[in-house]
């Protein structure tokens, strides 16, 4: 069905109850209703797109500036590219991104090892601070972890035998 634009001034009663004070955006927004003209402002100059930038399909372009940190790469990058086929309103967008984030963690560890760097997990987790300020709880958690590993090892060894 073809839609035609409606001239509001021809609509009976148009605007008779309008009240500019009825504006819950005050004082956060200095309202000028510029949005009514759509995406039509004079844009800042475009930052050269020197790395792969995935942009939301809810906008027609890459914003005038953007961050160039960690462009998509590897298997996580594949999932990120898939995600950007879907809108921000879709789980098809967010779920692949969350999966990509988890894959990225594994890629990060592998990347470290390939570069000859063995990650210091305890250091990265800030366990030194835990040891200094929360020793009892840290030791409890370590003990709990050790017991769980021992129990699981015992269980699987028993099943094998």
């Amino acid at each position: 069905m073809e839609q035609t634009a409606i001239d509001p001034s021809q609509v009976k009663g148009w605007g008779i109850d309008a009240d500019v004070r009825n504006d819950p955006t005050y004082p956060i927004k200095r309202r000028n209703n510029g949005e009514h003209a759509g995406y039509s402002w004079v844009r800042p100059s475009q930052q050269p797109i020197s790395v792969e930038i995935l942009h939301s399909n809810e906008r027609p372009n890459v914003s005038a500036t953007f961050g160039t940190s960690t462009p998509p790469a590897g298997l996580s990058g594949v999932f990120r590219r898939i995600a950007f086929r879907y809108s921000e309103s879709s789980y098809g967008h967010w779920l692949p991104l969350m999966l990509a984030d988890r894959i990225g963690v594994m890629e990060g560890v592998l990347g470290d090892l390939v570069r000859g760097h063995v990650p210091n997990f305890f250091g990265e987790l800030g366990w030194k601070a835990e040891w200094q300020h929360n020793r009892k709880s840290l030791m409890g958690r370590i003990l709990f972890g050790a017991l769980m590993i021992a129990a699981l090892t015992g269980y699987f060894r028993g099943r094998r035998e």
Partner: peptide
């Protein structure tokens, strides 16, 4: 950016020219 329609209305946390990945 200070130029887009949102920045012009002082919604500086909602700039439309600084984030390609999400419009929200």
């Amino acid at each position: 950016c200070g130029k887009c329609v949102f920045c012009e209305q002082e919604l500086y946390g909602n700039c439309h020219e600084s984030n390609p990945e999400a419009t929200a």
